[in-house]
Design a protein around this nucleic acid. Structure first.
Lengths: 199, 199, 199, 199
DNA sequence: ACTGGCGGGACACCCCGTTCCT
DNA sequence: AGGAACGGGGTGTCCCGCCAGT
């Protein structure tokens, strides 16, 4: 049943559909047909808005990178508030959603995709590298405020936090672990580093 | 083209070929044809030794799990020798080879494979979960010897070490990072935990 | 791009565009999109003036049949003038233009189109059958005038003339053969049939 | 139901299937899938034996050209036997089968195909041009035997015979016209040219 | 036991005819 | 009138599993 109406933000719709497929059926189920079928649009729509399916995937990752940038910004803004452990925990939970974890797996499993992302993420695993950098920046800011000890290495701590969280979150299948457990792990990570805020 | 000649240990040859393909071309290139072609063998050979390509992949992972078990054992044996940092570093470098990292990605990208591995690895990411458990056991043993503080949480430390190392190793593409860098990161992880050995 | 302006005789414009496409790019290039694009018109215009693309094609052929009817009439009017060979040659050259030859190929390659034309052309190949009938009528008229021998079979001669000319013209690709060559062939065909005009 | 047995002359099977499709369903129905389905063969078989579907079509035409060459040879061999009219009629009926007529239409409707055939058939319509040449050669041979008048132009006569026959045969849809009718037309064509054989 | 062709399915990409909102 | 979308189809390609020969 052909309709002459222009779709409302087709890119976003396709991205959303791709996310649902990734989380529900895994990376191997993410085909162009599956995306268009999931979003209830014609096959040609994808190729009208993206030159290639590979290009679509690349933009899908970039879209998630944009969302991650917003989380990073919120983390940065939270500097000096609450506790360092809480702030980092919040950011990790927000960042390592099933969507984003699936995106990470997608990038890892598609070499061409990863190669294309070498421009935005020259080193490390896309998304995780950016997240690590954001946590690192945040810790550096907290260090300036004196909320973590100056002897702590922000780079190592960030790598640590993200690596641990990734292992933790990716281990569960689809289900996000509850906040208290994550916070506990993060606290043990930052023990001896975080200073109690003096009020 | 000779026929009828029995191959010498075809399973090992196929596994080796699969590893080479994984490291060289990525998980998406690991097809049954690629495996048989890489090992210079007819397509039918794979199906004579494995009922299914999925079964082949499962056994490939199990093969790597066996190798990992040997590394774990060596780690356990090293208890009390050298330094904790050095021992953990050695184990991580031995365990997180490009081969094994590719196997991890392979498992993550193939849902059926991961589901089949739920029997051997009920929680966590296959290979990484086993590695974490091994490190945890090792740290517990060191704690008994008093080489790490009794207040340290071996589970959290192990998760930490493996998560960090995975992020570090998987970030590089194919190239293993040099030992000194890894040892540094592990040292910062174990700072305040590892006690200097009293001689 | 002005909108709302009624096109000047859109049917003729579309037909003309179709002819250009046929001659330039061949029958396989004659799609609805090509026609509207060639005539610089929106895709919907074609369907506003024709219920169907098949209907458009049918009317395209009928349009050429109309033009052919005018040629036939001119041939009939020429009875008694000049020479029979010259008159037939003129009609064939006028009729078997690259446009019309492409239309013949179009009809031959589209079964539905040919079936629809069974009403106007019950037997033979559309356009060629009509042309043959016209030549036949003309020859009969000349026979009445005594300009060709009464023993000649006009039907066979007409079939002959058109068949030969079709082979000759369709062999060239786009280029119409020069008149002298065609006249020569027609003369050899009518040798022993055409009587020299007694003045 | 896969069978490991190598197909018996797959090219011939595919050609035969293509012919059946052409005659039954027309040129527009001749797709690669239709060919493999008609011959009861897997899709990949066509691409295993031909690099391209276009290449397949080219070879299909060349195959028919080969068959035509055999007919031409039989015509040449018949020189001096029976009557010229009978021999030409036989050749035309054998050559202008529904198969070959469909092939002619196929070539006319596919520009790329025709362009590729410019090497074998530089001028004229493929198959018809070769047939015309064969008839011309035959007539020349008969002229040497004195069975047709030396004043007759073999080239024009051949063009005439083939053009007329093509019009006649292609006018019928699928059904070959009966021999007597064709022979009558050919006789009228050769009247005044063929000399009665003196016994 | 190994070899190599086949069956069948899926996928990306592309084109076509058509509808219909803006 | 213009242009986006739609559904269907076609091609080339890949991949896995299978099995008759060798």
């Amino acid at each position: 049943v052909p309709t002459g109406v222009a779709l409302d933000n087709p890119r976003a719709r396709l991205f959303e559909a791709a996310d649902q497929i990734l989380v529900r059926d895994g990376v191997s189920a993410l085909t162009s047909r599956a995306v268009t079928a999931e979003s209830g649009v014609a096959k040609g729509v994808l190729h009208r808005h993206f030159t290639d399916f590979d290009t679509f995937l690349l933009n899908l990752v970039l879209d998630h990178l944009d969302q991650l940038a917003q989380i990073s910004q919120r983390l940065q803004v939270s500097t000096g508030t609450a506790t360092v452990t809480a702030n980092v925990t919040t950011a990790l939970i927000e960042a390592l959603t099933p969507d984003n974890l699936a995106i990470v797996t997608l990038v890892l499993s598609r070499d061409t995709l990863r190669n294309q992302l070498r421009e935005t993420t020259p080193a490390g695993i896309p998304l995780l590298a950016e997240l690590t950098a954001a946590v690192c920046d945040y810790l550096r800011a907290e260090a300036k405020l004196g909320r973590i000890t100056s002897t702590a290495d922000p780079t190592a701590l960030a790598l640590n936090a993200v690596g641990t969280a990734h292992l933790l979150f990716a281990g569960e299948l689809g289900a996000t672990p509850d906040r208290s457990g994550v916070e506990e792990v993060m606290a043990s990570l930052l023990v001896g580093v975080e200073r109690p805020t003096i009020s």
